[in-house]
Design a protein around this nucleic acid. Structure first.
Lengths: 193, 193
DNA sequence: GTCTATAATTTGATAGAC
DNA sequence: GTCTATCAAATTATAGAC
C-alpha cells in the first residue's frame, strides 16, 4: 500500500467487469479488444482468461450481476391484481427509472450495441424483459396508438437518459422531466387517450 | 441473360452498397467483413477496393445517397416563419415519417450501431441532423418536460418502426399509430402541456 | 493468479497480371 | 473491372512456467 495504484488483490474479477463495461459502452463491444482491457488493468491478456472463459463471458457476467432488479420488477408487476391499476403502472415506471440510473453504463451499452448483442444469448433475454415490462403497462384491448405510447414510454426513458446528457440543465431536473413524460404517456394510454 | 444470377454489369457499385447495408444492418458494421460482402456478391475482396477506397467509404457512400431528403426537410423547416406553427411541426413529422419508411434499413442500422458509428464521420453529422429537427420542433422557452416530448417524438418514430415489426397488426396501421403518437407529443409540447 | 510465448485465424488493404 | 497472391497487423485463445 501507499502506491498510487492499489492492486486490491482479490477483486480482480470485479475490476475486469468494471473496465470492460466502461470500454464496451464507450467504443462498442466488437471494437474493444481484450488487449485494451488488460492494458488498462495493467495485467496481461492471459490473466483475463483465468477469470473468464471467453470475451463473451465477460459481458454475460456483467449482465447477470445487474439484470436481477429488472426481473424482480417484472415479477412484482405481474403479481399485482389484474387489471393493472394506473398507480401500479406509475410505480413500475418510477422503479424502472431508478434501475436505469443505477446501471446507466450497462443500459447505454445495450442501447447502442443492439446489433452486436443480437446473437449474444443475453440479447434475446433483454428483449424479453422489454416485452415483459410492456405487458404490464399496456392494456390488451387498447387501440394501437396506446400500445405505441407504452413502448414509447419505455424507449423515452432508455434514450432520454443519454440523449439529454449533452443538453443544458440540472441532471436531476432532466431525469424528472423524462419520468414525467413517460408517466404521462402511460396515463394517456391507460385512460384510452 | 437467361442465367439465374444476372451480372448486371455497370451497377456493381450499387450492388455493393445494397449488400453491404443489408449485412451491416443485420449483423452490425464491425462484425461484417469485406470477405463476407464479396462472397455474397460472388466477387473478390480486391474488386470491392476498385469501387471504394476503404470499408468506411462504403458506409459513407450509402449515407450520402440517402441523407439528402433529411437535409432538405431541415432546411425547409428552418425557412418557415418564426415562431414555427403547430401545423408546420406536424408537417415535419409527417415528412420525416415518409423518409424513415423509405430508408428503413439505413435507419435501422443507425439505431442499432450507434457505438460503431460514434467516430465514423457520418456519426456526428447524423447527430447534428437530429438536433436540427429537434430545434424545429421544440419551443426554446418551454419547460424541460416539453423539450423531452419533442425528443421523444423523434425517438418514438425511430424505434417504433422496428420494435413494432414483431407486434401483430397491419403495418400501415402501425405506422399511422406511431405518427399519431409523435404528433400528439409535439402538440402537447407546443401548447405547453 | 499472473506471467511469457505462441498458436491459429481473420481482418483491412495493396500490387500487379489480365 | 475483376482476378491471384500476398502483406502487415490485430484478434481470440491456449500451454505451461512461476
Amino acid at each position: 500500500m501507499g502506491t498510487g495504484k492499489q492492486q486490491r488483490r482479490g477483486d480482480t474479477r470485479q475490476r475486469i467487469q468494471d473496465v470492460a463495461l466502461e470500454l464496451f459502452a464507450e467504443q462498442g463491444y466488437e471494437k474493444t479488444s481484450l488487449r485494451e482491457i488488460s492494458e488498462k488493468l495493467d495485467v496481461t491478456k492471459a490473466a483475463l482468461y483465468y477469470h473468464f472463459k471467453t470475451k463473451e463471458d465477460i459481458l454475460t457476467s456483467i449482465f447477470d450481476d445487474l439484470t436481477g432488479p429488472i426481473d424482480e420488477l417484472i415479477a412484482w408487476g405481474h403479481a399485482q391484481p389484474q387489471p393493472v391499476s394506473l398507480e401500479t403502472k406509475k410505480d413500475v415506471l418510477t422503479r424502472y427509472s431508478a434501475i436505469l440510473i443505477n446501471a446507466a453504463p450497462l443500459f447505454r451499452f445495450m442501447q447502442e450495441n443492439q446489433a452486436a448483442m443480437r446473437d449474444l444469448k443475453s440479447g434475446a433475454s433483454f428483449k424479453d424483459r422489454m416485452l415483459g415490462l410492456h405487458e404490464i403497462l399496456k392494456d390488451p384491448d387498447a387501440p394501437m396508438a396506446d400500445q405505441v405510447r407504452c413502448f414509447s414510454a419505455l424507449f423515452t426513458m432508455h434514450a432520454g437518459m443519454f440523449v439529454l446528457k449533452d443538453a443544458e440543465g440540472d441532471p436531476k431536473e432532466k431525469r424528472e422531466a423524462i419520468l414525467e413524460v413517460a408517466i404521462d404517456l402511460v396515463t394517456r394510454a391507460h385512460t384510452g387517450g
